[in-house]
């Protein structure tokens, strides 16, 4: 885990993926970007998964008539 503040100062400098591009559009660095929207979207997905999984498992599946029990 890097805590060196200089480490994120110039992300483009040492990147071999750096192929130029419109730099003006890419000004935010990782330190001044907190992806709250992403946390909200993925958090919603997390809740949805848990609820749907429980419904599928306990209602659709375990609630059925005959099952393989042995």
């Amino acid at each position: 885990m890097s805590t060196d503040p200089s480490a994120s100062s110039d992300p483009a400098a040492s990147s071999s993926e750096a192929a130029g591009g419109d730099e003006a559009a890419h000004t935010r660095s990782i330190d001044d970007f907190d992806p709250y929207g992403t946390l909200a979207v993925t958090g919603l997905y997390f809740v949805l998964l848990l609820v749907l999984y429980a419904l599928m498992y306990f209602v659709e599946f375990a609630g059925r008539g005959a099952s393989i029990i042995e």
């Binding site: 480490a7 992300p11 400098a13 040492s14 990147s15 993926e17 192929a19 591009g21 990782i30």
Partner: peptide
């Protein structure tokens, strides 16, 4: 336009 900008946290990390 075929340029790909570098990652925010790039390979240096």
């Amino acid at each position: 336009d075929d340029a790909i900008p570098p990652a925010l946290s790039g390979p240096e990390h």
